[in-house]
Amino acid sequence: MSSVFAHIRFWEYNFASPHWLWLLLIIPVLLFFRYQSRKKSLGTHKFSRPVAELKAISFSPIRYVILAIYVLIGLGSAFLIMALALPSLPYSDDNQEEYGEGIDIILSMDISGSMMATDFLPNRLEAAKEVAKEFIDGRKGDRIGLVVYEGEAYTACPTTRNHSYLKTAIDNVEPGYLEPGTAIGTGLGTAVARLRSDSLKSKVIILLTDGESNKGEISPLEAAELAKNKNITVYTIGVGKEGYASMPVNTVFGTIVQNTRVSIDEKVLKQIADATNGAYFRAKDKSSLREIYKEIEKMETTKMVDETIKREPPYKPVSFLSYGLLFLVFGFAIEQFLYKNNA
């Protein structure tokens, strides 16, 4: 009950249909005619107590009671009219931005052998997996999927809101099960294909690699054109520090660790991002990779706010209806209690 009567300060309300408020001007006129009509129909007002007794105690309190009756009826009518005007509080907690169904995101992750380089701790791949899972935790309403690639690509997890399942799929990703190489175009093209025609309006691919494209039947720029035609935004991330990095290399004598020059095709990655209205980022350690994902998250959150679903304000006529009915009931009840019908 307290929530119903929480706000009586009607001047703090906005009204969606303010034209109803013109009816407030009629209330004094109607009350005047009601008083005159009541006076004519009843003649002399009769009360429940004897006339001699009423004279003894004076009539002045009765006049105040009659005035109170018409004030109550007037206020009750006014509150009902304001309820018709659809009141809403401008600071209402309910009046929040309402977003759409989220967005579709595909993480397209390079898992080639070079991703085992240790310039990121414990290595590039494990760092990329860890930060990707942190990113997923912040995207509660989004459908997110995972594509992984080396010399070929496959879908490790289709777009889903079951983020626990997706993170398990990320944990299970290991290099060495696909054809060796780095097929950036295939990784991007597979991600584009996973964003089906029934995907949500906003579609995003986050393409992560630490090298140059040297495999695949489709070039990175051809795949970028496919993404552009589907209105997919592609954010590209190059991972690897400047200069050389230690990475395991398979030889006839087994796996050895050697310093290898970090070679990322930043020109192509920038072209992919530019063609799809995305952005290119360079991550030189795990900390910078984490900041890149935070930046992407911020950019996509801003986009969602810009595309907010507009809705009607939360109307709150209940308090006005409650007060209106309460005042009218009290007013008419007191009137019936005091007045007697003429014989």
Rank of each mutant, 00 (worst) to 15 (best):
R9E: 09
F10M: 06
W11K: 08
E12I: 03
S17Q: 10
S17R: 08
P18W: 03
P18M: 05
W22A: 13
L23G: 12
I26R: 08
I27Y: 00
L30C: 08
Y35D: 08
L54R: 15
S58R: 15
P61A: 11
P61G: 09
I62F: 15
Y64R: 14
V65P: 04
V65W: 15
A78I: 12
A78L: 07
A85H: 11
L89M: 11
Y91F: 06
D94K: 15
G100P: 06
I103G: 06
T118D: 14
T118E: 15
T118W: 00
L121A: 13
E126P: 11
A132T: 04
F135K: 10
K140T: 15
G141S: 10
I144G: 04
A156H: 02
T159I: 12
N172S: 12
V173M: 12
L178R: 07
E179G: 02
G181M: 03
S197F: 03
S197A: 09
L200W: 00
L207F: 00
L208A: 05
E212Q: 09
S213R: 02
K215I: 05
S219Y: 00
E222P: 00
K228Y: 00
I237E: 04
V239E: 09
G240V: 10
K241H: 05
I256C: 02
N259S: 11
Q271F: 11
I272Q: 07
N277E: 05
A279L: 12
F281W: 04
E295I: 08
E297Y: 05
K298C: 05
E300N: 02
E300V: 03
K303Y: 09
E307K: 10
K310W: 10
Y315I: 04
K316I: 08
V318L: 10
F320P: 00
L325P: 12
L328F: 04
F332M: 03
I334K: 06
Q336L: 09
L338Y: 14
N341V: 08
